[in-house]
Computed example of a mutant assay.
Amino acid sequence: MSWVRVYLHLVFSTKNREPFLNSSAIRKTIFQHIKKNAEEKGIWLDCINGYQDHAHCLISLGKEQTISKVAQLIKGESSFWINQNKLTSEKFVWQDDYWAVGVSESHLEAVRKYIHNQETHHSVNTFSEEIDSFMEKYGWTFTSEK
């Protein structure tokens, strides 16, 4: 029997960073649905939260799961569900890209706390500032795909 526990912090935004998730009620509804759907698909979604234009997930990958497949399953199904249930006045779309980084077991509680405190965090920092901070922390630079 295989035993795998690989955690990652996955972040993705709405297309063009549109503030579709502009109320705590809509965020709660959508994030609860994403958590339930992930469970049904065998995705271990430890926690999820976000703010007006993005979502943060703490995920433990299964032995046959890839980051891209998990992101596709979460984002694709939730976009479909949001539009089917007319939760936004305009067509809802997640941006194609995402950000993901591995999380060591010793940092799980800190990442959970960070994800759970998104509203407080974003009362001070914008999503752009948050991404810039991540880019600096992890030494990443923007690249263009050709």
Rank of each mutant, 00 (worst) to 15 (best):
M1H: 07
M1K: 12
V6L: 04
Y7P: 02
Y7L: 10
Y7D: 03
L8A: 13
L8E: 11
H9W: 14
H9V: 05
V11H: 07
F12T: 09
T14S: 13
T14D: 07
K15T: 07
R17S: 06
R17D: 11
R17L: 06
E18Q: 02
F20R: 02
N22A: 11
N22L: 00
S23N: 15
S23V: 09
S24A: 15
S24F: 11
A25Q: 14
R27I: 03
T29F: 04
T29I: 14
T29N: 08
I30S: 00
F31W: 12
H33D: 05
I34H: 05
K35N: 05
K36L: 12
N37P: 00
N37K: 03
N37S: 14
A38T: 08
E40Y: 10
E40V: 09
K41M: 13
K41D: 09
G42H: 10
I43V: 11
I43W: 04
L45Y: 07
L45F: 00
D46E: 12
D46C: 06
N49A: 13
G50V: 08
G50I: 05
Y51C: 12
D53R: 12
H54N: 02
H54F: 06
H54S: 01
H56W: 05
I59A: 09
L61Q: 04
K63N: 01
E64D: 11
E64T: 04
Q65E: 15
Q65W: 11
I67Y: 01
I67H: 03
S68G: 06
S68Q: 02
S68M: 00
K69E: 14
V70G: 09
Q72M: 06
L73R: 00
L73N: 07
I74S: 03
K75D: 13
G76I: 01
S78N: 08
S79F: 01
F80R: 12
F80D: 04
I82Y: 04
I82C: 10
N83T: 07
Q84Y: 06
Q84H: 10
N85V: 10
T88L: 12
S89P: 11
K91F: 15
K91W: 15
F92N: 04
V93R: 11
W94V: 03
W94K: 08
W94H: 04
D96R: 10
Y98V: 05
W99S: 07
A100H: 09
A100K: 08
V101Y: 08
G102R: 02
V103R: 03
E105M: 03
E105P: 01
E105W: 04
E105H: 04
S106H: 11
S106C: 11
L108C: 05
E109T: 12
E109I: 13
V111Y: 10
K113M: 05
Y114T: 02
Y114G: 03
H116V: 01
H116R: 14
H116Y: 11
H116D: 07
Q118Y: 13
E119R: 15
T120L: 02
T120A: 00
T120F: 04
H121E: 12
H121P: 08
H121G: 10
S123Y: 06
S123E: 14
N125S: 15
T126G: 14
S128I: 10
E129A: 04
E129S: 10
E129L: 01
E130Q: 14
F134S: 11
K137G: 00
Y138S: 01
Y138N: 07
Y138A: 05
W140L: 12
T141W: 11
F142C: 00
T143Y: 07
T143D: 07
E145P: 03
K146M: 06
K146Q: 12
